[in-house]
Design a protein around this nucleic acid. Sequence first.
DNA 1: TATTGTTATACTCTATAACTATA
DNA 2: TATAGTTATAGAGTATAACAATA
Lengths: 146, 146
Amino acid sequence: MNTASELLVARHLSQMLLAAADRSREEFAGIAQELDIPVHLARALCILEDAAPMTELATRLECDKSYITPLADQMEALGLVNRVPGQDRRTKLLALTARGKSVRNLLEAQIAERSPVIASLDEAERVELERLLRKLVPHESQASGQ
Amino acid sequence: MNTASELLVARHLSQMLLAAADRSREEFAGIAQELDIPVHLARALCILEDAAPMTELATRLECDKSYITPLADQMEALGLVNRVPGQDRRTKLLALTARGKSVRNLLEAQIAERSPVIASLDEAERVELERLLRKLVPHESQASGQ
DNA sequence: TATTGTTATACTCTATAACTATA
DNA sequence: TATAGTTATAGAGTATAACAATA
């Protein structure tokens, strides 16, 4: 295969990959919007199945800890989490409230139902897609957030 | 299959999809950096094979036209394009200079060689990936920029 | 009246650095 | 001395709105 046609294939497939990722993000954003919570709070909610220190949330969201303070403020203002003390007195855990758990459950149910990889692919196709994506992704980066 | 396991599959595959898209973007950004041009200029360069009005560039890059003015300024400052008059006297075309064409060629050659979908997949795998991605992407959005 | 490109300005998202209180 | 969280501030990236020239 020559360079010119490889270029076309590279462009086309890369664009479809980006489009598929965008579609996945949009579906997630749509679900968050229907539940009336900002997308970045929805991402945090997914992570907070168990109460976790703010620094851990920063690590999982791949952002600076200074970003977590206002994010936690917003989650508290919406009644989704409480700041509770950890054993170390410097540490504050973000713990889901009853409402937080309820919203998180709704969120997860919608993701399971509507995520494009579930809604548009059958079991065999999902297995094959995973195999192909695994070849495209460097192996350490296969465990990041939504 | 129950909802709980579908949730896990949805999460895992969606994350891999996002990671693969990130990887593709990073490869593109790396190539741009090696050629010493900002990523957003590299994207514009890819589009400008033929001279095009600034508004068309805004459409292709999915951004506002007010964003194109400083972008074109930067490309001119780097000697990559010139603003040339169109037939309509309101319109300015962005036309690649000799240097712009040369940088664009280098860029495309690197993309053809190093894009993950070329470097990590064989022909049959690319065909299969395209088939799967096509099912994940709404059909109008299969022609956007890098 | 609508459109092209420009300008000035404002907004969103996120990070950096300095700070407090612990350890 | 190092760490958890907070605060104030700054930067990148991008959009909105008003404008001038032209259609």
